[in-house]
Write a protein that binds this DNA or RNA. Sequence first.
RNA 1: UGGGGCGUAGCCAAGUGGCAAGGCAGGGGACUUUGGAUCCUCUAUUCGUAGGUUCGAAUCCUACCGCCCCAGCCA
Length: 562
Amino acid sequence: MDKNSTPPSSRSDFLRDIVASDLASGRVREVVTRFPPEPNGYLHIGHAKSICLNFGIAAEFGGTCHLRFDDTNPSKEEQEYIDAIQADIAWLGFDWGDKTYYTSDYFEQLYDWAVYLIKHGKAYVDDLSAEEIREYRGTLTEPGRNSPWRDRSTEENLDLFERMRAGDFPDGYRVLRAKIDMSSGNINLRDPVMYRILHSTHPRTGDAWCIYPSYDFAHGQSDAIEGITHSICTLEFQDHRPLYDWFLTNLPVPSVPRQYEFARLNLTHTVLSKRVLLRLVKEGLVRGWDDPRMPTISGIRRRGFPAQGVRDFAAMIGVARADSVVEIEMLEHAVRDTLNRTAPRRFGVLDPIRVVIENYREGAVEYVDVPNNPEEPDAGTRAVPFSRELLIERDDFMEDPPEKFYRLAPGREVRLRSAYFITARQVVKNAHGDVVELRCTYDPATKGGSAPDGRRPRATLHWLSAPHAVPAEVRLYDHLFASPYPGTGGRDILEDVNPRSETVLRTCVVEPSLAQPVVGQTVQFERLGYFCADPDSTPTMPVFNRTLTLKDTWAKLRAKTA
RNA sequence: UGGGGCGUAGCCAAGUGGCAAGGCAGGGGACUUUGGAUCCUCUAUUCGUAGGUUCGAAUCCUACCGCCCCAGCCA
């Protein structure tokens, strides 16, 4: 197998064990899973875990995975989200063929099943108000009480339910409830609401309905209709499983799926709550759902994270039932790992300082060959212009260098990557004492970056020919939340937003090959990190988002010393 | 004081009665035309705690402790 596509580990986990044994025992012939997003927001990295799980299991066991929009609440759902969700899953690299479903496609069948339960005395129309229902439900430690409407006749229930559908009542006027057990220790079994009245236009069914099924009444039956074998969801639905099973055993469903739960993803320095994400967008704290700092799929895509890295991350963290918070460094590792193998190397200087090579012929230009990716020789080389006036990173020079600083300093020789060795001869400063230019000399014998006499400079710097350098804007990103556990201090979580999560640099320069970058392509600026061309790029000003820095042991050393 | 879950290293996580995988993070070193990458190497006598069963327990039993979820006409 190609090392570039080797999964981090072909692991087994409790879900794969269950699927394998169901297949072995013949309980199921073929595996059918589903990813069931509600189209009320954008998908985030937590959904990516679920997507990789559901599509991954289906693929590994030769089954199929459906995409089903769980669109039972038109007051929160929009077509924009339906479109974005599909784009995100496709980008992640999964293909659901023609298996696109909507819970709303089953509204008629669900309605019929509700009537079926009424006829069997297992559902009733309740006239209690929302508040009364809450009161009658009891508490965690006290049982609930039966609604006075619980024992209506079948005829009356049928008539009322029909009129609910017909639009005879305003929102919230009545609900249809399952008749189960008001004293159950499991609150979900205390006569859960099956249908509520909602005069709201649905993105798909328009105004055809004014009653909508609840999640509990829709999900299991939708699974059954589609022949889902393993209905995988997150831990908070554990308490709903008895209800999920109750509907399936009390209804003439075509198949009997089973629900399994796993722990949802939590990430340090990150918030994965649709509610909070929506607020960040609505309150303008970020550039939108696809802001490069957002943990949304569209955000990390714009940031430059490769889908492969996200998939590797999902495989790396595994699946279990214990609540956990994964350190974001793991995600970053997976992303760096794939980018290291695949990202083309380029030169970019974020904070340029001028270097004049005094012994280099004025007006001369030569092109040096630079490897596109040392990790992959087949990627070839490119020609980068070199001339008398260069630009290097300001951080790569120190007039009075501390110990362990190996880069350029007065009198010191360093290598310019793939070009020549240069030695700093003189420092030019302005009236404020700021270094504005370095006068250097080069050794013509070191062309290509190696010396015939075998001497080897301690440092290699990236560089640009000043007259050929292309101005660019670079946006530096850091964690959206500085705290590893945002929102835990009793503050409003939005107060924890890192004010330095985005830094815009407008005086950067990049090599000529990046003048018209491919938007969405991530390259490595050598020695700096990975950068992805942003859609905000214009023909005269490319814009790059810093995906991640390279690991920087010098920065770490310096921080430790300071 | 009801119901449902979960506790293995700083963080994920294997392990299902035979003597604690792996990854991330961190430390040390080698190599290096990216202070990147790569490569070596170190980090749990111990599995929430206490008892018990057994030749043998992270795995079985008992009790206790801690954490998470549930009282939407959200999903």
